[in-house]
Design a protein around this nucleic acid. Structure first.
Lengths: 191, 191
DNA sequence: GGCTTTTCGGCACGGTGCGTGCCGATAAGC
DNA sequence: GCTTATCGGCACGCACCGTGCCGAAAAGCC
């Protein structure tokens, strides 16, 4: 039994993030606590507290590891099809472990912590809104959407409608919902 | 010191809901626990557990007491103005105590409890969506909106966009956001 | 290579809330 | 006036929080 030497520093940090995601996958939302991560990693709690001030901070970093940038929209020249594909692709990705449980845990903690709510928005949701905005602005410049309209809020509405279902209902956004959302968007701004 | 006789039965139940709302107003989200309610009401924990199986159940009933039915839309014949008025009116009502803290506490608990999430949706959000739908269907029948379109999803999108801001961002829906949302809705379905 | 410094795992602590069990007291129902 | 259900109070074991202290082990330095 060759004893693995104790890892330290950056290697430990990385391993802790990995263990956190594993734990989220196996135990789900309910099992996510600092004690549980320490136990699963065979680590003292100090080793975690030295790196992150709270469970929320740890979860934010863990989420960053898997919040892949493949949320980028394609640009086939058909804005409706590109939005549709991306929306439908993001639904299972957001709901499945490890993203789903970690995300839910953060949302829950953020309800009682205004600062965390702002951080969560800045690090994840704002990016989603911005990329959505970028894609529809490109469509606007290409003549697919009406010109002369500020699309910032419409981009937010598109994202908001999807997250509303994720977080507040038990129905995930399905094809029907996504199509209806895009119907509304295209009816408003399509040409 | 005329001792108030111990209240029992329905009177106690009512008082406990009142105390819960008071506690939410004074201590906010963080102070909401069964122990805290029992302490504030001068009551044994059993007295609460006998009535509600969990904090979430207690909060749901408490929320019902203040989730006033004044979320009803007016019907002045101008659907955009009626929606706008109602949206702007609901924003501070949802954010302020006691609704704000209680609602946040429920959202937080619902993240780890699928059943609660469904109950929360059924008892509150669905009503909001249905009343919104009813108002815009009336407008459709009155010829204010285009005919022959199913407005179920658009009603959900309207509500979803507002709740998205409430729960996931630090910016409450303001006049600009509501106007932009209504711009999109009217551009899509107005005549 | 030997020494110092930092990080490590392990353990224990007090604090808080959970959900339950057991009291003797008290109000309600008959 | 007597029975019965509910009451408040207290205690328990459990879990997690965030912190402190320990001796061991790795990393860094000369």
């Amino acid at each position: 039994m060759a004893e693995e030497p104790r890892r330290r520093g950056a290697a430990r940090t990385d391993e802790l993030l990995r263990v956190t995601l594993e734990l989220a996958t196996e135990s789900g939302y309910a099992g996510l606590s600092i004690e549980a991560v320490a136990r699963a990693a065979g680590v003292g709690k100090h080793t975690i507290y030295r790196r992150w001030p709270s469970m929320a901070a740890l979860l934010l970093d863990a989420l960053s590891r898997v919040w892949t940038t493949d949320l980028d929209y394609r640009d086939t020249g058909d804005v409706r099809a590109d939005l549709r594909e991306q929306f439908l692709r993001s639904v299972p990705a957001l709901a499945a472990p490890p993203i789903g449980p970690v995300y839910r845990a953060l949302i829950a903690e953020a309800q009682g912590d205004e600062t965390l709510r702002a951080t969560l928005y800045d690090r994840f949701l704002r990016t989603v809104e911005e990329r959505t905005l970028a894609r529809i602005v490109r469509a606007q410049l290409a003549g697919e959407l009406v010109a002369g309209v500020d699309l910032t809020f419409p981009a937010e509405v598109l994202c908001g409608a999807l997250y509303y279902r994720h977080l507040l209902s038990t129905r995930l956004p399905d094809e029907k919902a996504v199509d209806a959302l895009l119907d509304m968007f295209m009816a408003a701004y399509g040409r």
